[in-house]
Amino acid sequence: MTDLAQSPVRSDIRLSWIGRLRGLLPDLAPSTVIGSAVLLFWVACAIAGAQFVPFDPCAEDFLSMMTAPDAVHWFGTDQLGRDVLSRIVVGSRDILLVAPLATLAGVTTGSVIGLVLGTFGGLVDAVGARLLDAVMSLPFIVLVTMALVAIGPSNLTVILVIGLAYAPLVARTVRTAAREQRERDYISAARLAGEGRLAIMFLEILPNVRETILIELITRLGYAFFSIATLSFLGLGIQPPSADWGLAIADGYGFLTAGKWWVVVFNSAAIISLVMATNLIAQGIGAFENSDK
């Protein structure tokens, strides 16, 4: 799927005025631009949305519970009479805080582990790789469920647990990339020049696996949105009284059979737009080229 990725030489070849104009902007793929716009919209909602929403997202109104969308409540109201539109705008806050922090924690930890295993090799690598295998032989969601039930769900524990669960996945990828670099001549040169192992690891290998880590960062962010929404839906992630989308869907789910669809549909649309935006950005920077899940 190289064809979907932006070719780096394109803007150099085209020298029309459009090409020159585009040369002034960073060379971004259209999918990156659209994805970033949607992501920025949600970030803006998370930061300042509370000032612009038509209703207080926590105001309960027992006279208009589960009312269908109309001119007053564009997206209807939920089981406590709260305005669904206002809650969706404000509900972006927790997931947009938790998912990037969890991703950052996981990718940082995983990169360090991967670098150490890949650079040192030998016994360290053999034992480390076996431990990573053991952790990864559990489905991600099972691992996270167990941990969250054990220590109790909260924003902080979700960040830590998702971060720790991502670390082995990232470590495996970074380890492979680091091992590849280790065989190169410049590493032997550095070794002969008397550089220590830590210096080789951080000063020589790390800059050369930068791209691998960046791609891990953006694809893992997409899956973090996925996982955190799922955990909230299961009651193991973000906790009430947050207006979180996954939580709202869990609450509205029981009303579907009564034909009251709006809570589930609009919150689902919010989740889908967020994961799609991340996906578009990832597509733009050429992730997924030979990734497996």
């Binding site: 799927m1 979907l4 996925f226 929404a229 839906f233 996954g246 059979t257 589930v264 549909v265 689902s268």
Partner: peptide, 28 residues
């Protein structure tokens, strides 16, 4: 391009979301 893009997009929609939407359309 369509097949690859659709495939990747579907793979990142949480399964409880697609499950609920399918349940609404085809079940209800």
């Amino acid at each position: 391009r369509l097949i690859v893009l659709t495939g990747v997009s579907l793979s990142i929609v949480p399964d409880f979301v697609s499950g609920l939407l399918l349940l609404m359309v085809f079940g209800l």
